[in-house]
């Protein structure tokens, strides 16, 4: 039953074995590749904590079967930057101190990246709309909005 899949994650190619082609990509990233960026929040596509980019598009990895992701280029939060070399969006989140527990922040940054890839000068409303389906329970929203504005300015 178990099958092998090729995952191209953050520029590196990995081979992952899964028992079920419907296993969500999230579990391969977290358990097989030991990545911590994508997070399990709901498994239902409702919160955004698990967001990664698949071929440059923000998707919810809890709802993408591994068989659909195989062979495609995947970027996770780790792929944007590291604490030593922060991506400008990550830098903006640090500058604005835009996290409390931080559990949602993967989703916020990956969704913001998808926005800024297409809209270099988003209005505040654009940012709010782009993040409307990403949930944060700690109430860090105001800072996240400021961080995305700061990132937009830095990237423009």
């Amino acid at each position: 039953m178990s099958q092998t899949y090729t995952l191209k994650v953050n520029g590196a190619t990995h081979t992952v074995t899964a028992d079920d082609p419907k296993m969500p990509l999230l579990y391969a990233l977290r358990n097989d590749l030991a990545l911590r960026g994508p997070r399990f929040g709901c498994g239902l596509g409702q919160c955004g904590a698990c967001t990664v980019h698949l071929e440059g598009v923000a998707v919810r990895s809890c709802s993408v079967p591994i068989s659909d992701a195989a062979g495609k280029s995947i970027t996770t939060l780790e792929g944007l930057g590291s604490p030593e070399h922060l991506h400008p969006i990550q830098q903006a989140f640090v500058d604005e101190q835009a996290a409390q527990c931080g559990y949602c922040i993967n989703g916020m940054i990956m969704q913001a990246k998808a926005l800024l890839d297409h809209n270099q000068h988003p209005s505040e409303q654009d940012i709010r709309d782009a993040l409307a389906l990403n949930l944060c329970r700690c109430g860090t929203h105001a800072r996240i909005i400021r961080a995305v504005q700061r990132a937009a300015a830095a990237l423009a």
Partner: peptide, 21 residues
């Protein structure tokens, strides 16, 4: 003072309970 945990949290390096193995 900037929060110690934020650089790790914005880069996927921070270890949450959910990451512990």
């Amino acid at each position: 003072v900037a929060r110690l945990d934020i650089p790790g949290k914005v880069t996927g390096r921070f270890e949450y309970m959910q990451d512990f193995r």
